[in-house]
Structure formats: structure tokens, C-alpha cells
């Protein structure tokens, strides 16, 4: 009997070593180093020796906050995210309602899902440049279509207007992500106990009532998950705005990540300010992801606690039996 109580616990530690080491080297250390740089004078092309700021330790943060471009980029990031997220979630909800409605079975759902998700797996860098050439002036597919159908008489230079730039970036994000959100929501609805829907139908609820008052409350946690992941993705938006118009026209598509990139890597070499700006964004992301963290953790922790309590109870019972 003694052999059965051999502890395998050490293997838990041993098998976690590769993860811990890689995480420490490639994520934790860079985070700490970024924090450190944010309080130093590290700038210049070949400068690798940061010195802690002597006077005002928070100078980099204050500089960033005072920079007009950072304020603009921060506003743009939120604006573009909302312009993409609201229609994206709206459309995804409508499509979810249609596809999961068993009163009107939509045919070809598999095909629609595959097609709607496709833009999501395509390289964002390619998508950005593709749309840039689609809106080309004076020739480009969008202008060609508009002129062929006589919607406009002369070619339009879409990309010089600030609102167009933001709108198109938001549209590209929408185009890339609505399929993903839709599949996410549909999988949530499929997980709902079907008897709830039958009961609603029995009670005479129509489609809209069923969706609003039965389906949506049941997929609350998935909606929150979509919201938070989309928000974090949106706050990190880089590929599309950077490659679509390099932040232009007139800073209209300058997002915070494009700002950070410009500070550090496009000739300015202001690593300390870029680090400070990264940290500001990190704090915001940590704030929002901690909301998700608590919502998701509570359930898991509660489950684990229950199981452990049961295990302890059983062990005690066994011990009593043996005694």
C-alpha cells in the first residue's frame, strides 16, 4: 500500500519548466525591460545603455500624454474600434438569430460560415494593401464599379478624406471579423438547452422575442468574451491602419500602436517614449482583461473547489472505513 502514495507532484513542476523558462525569457523579461526603459533616457539609433532619469522620473509618460499625436491616436483607436465593433456585433447577432432559428432552417449554412470566416485567416498585411489598391485613384476597382453603374461621373479620390480613411479601416476590420464573431455566437447558442426554446415557442414567443429575451441572456458570457477580445484586439490595431494609409490622411488612421511604432522604429528612435506609451496601453488592456479574467475564473475555481471538497470528503470516508 505504501507504494501507492508515491508523490508524482514533482513531475508537475518538471513538465512546466519549458513554459516557465520561455515565458520568463521572451515575455516577462521584455515586459520588465519595457517598464525599465520607460523610466530612462534610452533614445538614439545605436544606444543600448539606458540611464534612469535623474530629474522627473515620470517625464516620458508626461511627454507622451502631452504629445498631440498620442492624444489623436488614442481617440482614433477607440473611434475606429467602435465604428467596427457595433455593426460587426449587430450583424453577427442578426446572422446568429437567422442561422439558429429552427423555425426557418436556412440551407447552405456550412457554405455561408466558411465564406464569412475566410477574410479572417487572410494575412492582414495583404488585406490592407489589397484594399488600398481597390480604392486606388484615378483607377481602381471601386471607382470602376461606381462609374460603370453611373453612381459617380468622375473618379473619386477616396483616400484623401479623413472620415473615409477611418471608415474604410473600420470596414476592413468589420469585414475580417464579423464571420468570426458570428461563429462564436452560434456555437454559444447551440450550447443552450433546446428545451428552453421549445418552452418559449409553447408560450407563444415570436422569433424576435425568443431571440431578445431567451437567446441573448443565455449567451451573456460569450458576448462578454467577444467584447473583451475584440476590444483588446482593437486597442492593438496595427497591421491594417499602418499598411493601408500609414496612419494618414492627416493622422486620421493613426492608432496608438502605429504611434508607438513610429516613435521607436521609423527613424525617431525614441525608445523611452515608445515604452511609456506601450505601458499606458498595457495598463488599459490589463484593466479590461481582468474583467474577463474574473468572469471566467470564478466558474473554474468554483468547480475545482467543489471537486476538491468531494475528494477530501471521500478520502475522509475511506479513512473512517479503514479505521
Amino acid at each position: 500500500m505504501g507504494k501507492k502514495t508515491i508523490s508524482y507532484a514533482k513531475w508537475g513542476y518538471i513538465f512546466s519548466i519549458p513554459f516557465v523558462v520561455a515565458f520568463a525569457l521572451f515575455t516577462l523579461y521584455p515586459i520588465i525591460y519595457t517598464v525599465f526603459i520607460a523610466f530612462t533616457d534610452l533614445k538614439g539609433a545605436n544606444n543600448t545603455t539606458p540611464h534612469l532619469l535623474t530629474g522627473d522620473l515620470l517625464k516620458n509618460f508626461k511627454d507622451v500624454m502631452a504629445t498631440q499625436q498620442f492624444k489623436i491616436s488614442f481617440g482614433n483607436t477607440w473611434k475606429i474600434w467602435m465604428m467596427n465593433f457595433i455593426p460587426q456585433m449587430g450583424l453577427a447577432l442578426i446572422l446568429t438569430a437567422w442561422f439558429t432559428d429552427n423555425r426557418s432552417k436556412i440551407k447552405g449554412q456550412g457554405l455561408f460560415k466558411v465564406a464569412f470566416y475566410m477574410p479572417n485567416i487572410i494575412t492582414a498585411a495583404t488585406v490592407a494593401i489589397m484594399f488600398n489598391s481597390f480604392f486606388g485613384y484615378p483607377i481602381g476597382p471601386v471607382n470602376d464599379i461606381l462609374m460603370r453603374f453611373h453612381i459617380v461621373d468622375t473618379a473619386q479620390n477616396f483616400l484623401i478624406k479623413k472620415s473615409n480613411g477611418q471608415g474604410i479601416v473600420a470596414f476592413i476590420q468589420f469585414w475580417m471579423w464579423f464571420g468570426y464573431t458570428m461563429i462564436t455566437l452560434i456555437s454559444g447558442v447551440i450550447g443552450i438547452d433546446p428545451s428552453i426554446f421549445e418552452a418559449a415557442e409553447m408560450d407563444g414567443a415570436n422569433r424576435i422575442q425568443t431571440f431578445l429575451f431567451v437567446t441573448i441572456p443565455c449567451i451573456r458570457s460569450i458576448l462578454l468574451f467577444s467584447l473583451v477580445t475584440s476590444l483588446i484586439g482593437g486597442l492593438n490595431m496595427f497591421d491594417i491602419p499602418y499598411l493601408f494609409l500609414k496612419g494618414g490622411p492627416d493622422n486620421a488612421t493613426l492608432t496608438t500602436n502605429v504611434f508607438i511604432y513610429n516613435q521607436a522604429f521609423s527613424g525617431a528612435y525614441l525608445y523611452n517614449r515608445a515604452a511609456a506609451a506601450s505601458l499606458i496601453m498595457l495598463l488599459i488592456i490589463v484593466f479590461f482583461s481582468s474583467i474577463l479574467f474574473y468572469v471566467m475564473r470564478d466558474r473554474d475555481a468554483a468547480k475545482a473547489k467543489k471537486l476538491r471538497k468531494q475528494a477530501i470528503k471521500q478520502a475522509k470516508l475511506k479513512a473512517k472505513e479503514v479505521a
Binding site: 515565458f23 521572451f26 515575455t27 523579461y29 521584455p30 515586459i31 520588465i32 525591460y33 519595457t34 517598464v35 525599465f36 526603459i37 534610452l42 543600448t48 473583451v228 477580445t229 483588446i232 484586439g233 492593438n236 496595427f238 500602436n257 508607438i260 521607436a264 522604429f265 525608445y271 515608445a274 515604452a275 506601450s278 505601458l279 496601453m281 498595457l282 488592456i285 490589463v286 482583461s289 481582468s290 474577463l292 479574467f293 471566467m296 475564473r297
Partner: peptide, 20 residues
């Protein structure tokens, strides 16, 4: 779970400097 949501881009400055 806590670090799951941290995107690589926010650590990019430190990572780049380390590599450099």
C-alpha cells in the same frame, strides 16, 4: 489565465532592445 490576454506588441520595445 492572467497573462493570456497580454498581446506581444506591448512588450515589443523591451523585446527588441533585448534582441538588439
Amino acid at each position: 489565465m492572467g497573462v493570456m490576454m497580454i498581446p506581444g506588441q506591448v512588450t515589443a520595445i523591451g523585446f527588441y532592445q533585448m534582441c538588439y
